[in-house]
């Protein structure tokens, strides 16, 4: 038990520190460092900002290494290193490996044309996969959801029917606003005007949601400072006071 407790301590400059407590102090310090931007750009904020860039880039590399490079390339070529050492090596993955290496040719100006092949492969792949998915999800399903039966089959719920009509009219009017082949005059002028109103409602809703999402993040940080970090501070302070 004592050994386990000892192993969970960080020994820095002869001081025995609990990694969790160090983590809480670090979190608080970094939170204050970022919030210090509210009083203006300063070295503490800049330090935290650059730390964030480095740590996030490193995180991305580790995740790609762990979720793509190791299982899809290295363990397939050298199964003895992976979780299934009895499997046969899959040399087909040399093709994407080679395409990936060709991508790195961008670093060498003389051979940077080689990088066009992996780019063409990736773009072609996602364009091909994207067309049916976009048609199905963003066109057909959305159109189907727009044309909900207003009258229904049995009893009519007038509130729901009216709301469905609002969506139908709103989508048609919004689309007419984006129709630029004719001048927006007469009927087209009226519908495109109504379309702008619906767009404004959508933008307002998006704005309100974004503000509240940021607010909830801010509340989360304040809650952390008040309920997780402050108790640690008071414990440490009480030790020094005694």
């Amino acid at each position: 038990m004592a050994d386990a407790e000892q192993s969970s301590q960080l020994i820095i400059l002869g001081l025995s520190l609990n990694p969790q407590v160090v983590g809480l102090w670090l979190q608080a310090a970094l939170t204050f460092a970022i919030l210090s931007f509210l009083i203006g750009d300063n070295p503490v904020y800049k330090f935290a900002e650059h730390l964030f860039v480095g740590i996030s880039a490193g995180y991305g590399v580790v995740i790609v290494w762990k979720q793509a490079v190791l299982p899809l390339l290295i363990f397939k070529l050298l199964p003895q290193l992976g979780p299934k050492p009895d499997e046969l090596a899959d040399y087909w993955v040399l093709i994407p490996g080679l395409l990936g290496l060709m991508m790195l040719a961008r670093f060498i100006p003389r051979y940077d044309w080689l990088s066009r092949y992996p780019i063409a492969f990736t773009v072609g792949l996602f364009m091909g996969a994207g067309i049916p998915a976009v048609v199905q999800m963003n066109l057909l399903q959305q159109a189907q959801a727009t044309m909900k039966p207003v009258l229904g089959l049995g009893s009519i719920e007038w509130g729901l029917a009216l709301s469905c009509l609002v969506v139908l009219v709103g989508v048609i009017c919004t689309l007419t606003y984006f129709y630029f082949s004719r001048p927006h005059e007469g009927v087209l002028g009226v519908t495109s005007k109504i379309g702008i109103w619906f767009l404004m409602v959508a933008f307002g809703a998006g704005f309100g949601n974004t503000v509240m999402a940021r607010m909830s993040l801010l509340i989360g940080r304040v809650e952390f400072l008040l309920y997780e970090w402050m108790p640690i501070v008071s414990v440490h302070l009480s030790k020094y006071v005694q």
Binding site: N138, S163, V167, V169, G170, V171, T174, A202
Partner: peptide, 20 residues
């Protein structure tokens, strides 16, 4: 659920047609 969806859907149709 209704007016905001209508506006967003209008934009989405345009994005979908453009990407196709």
């Amino acid at each position: 659920q209704y007016p905001a969806v209508a506006g967003k859907r209008g934009i989405l149709f345009g994005v979908a047609l453009g990407s196709i």
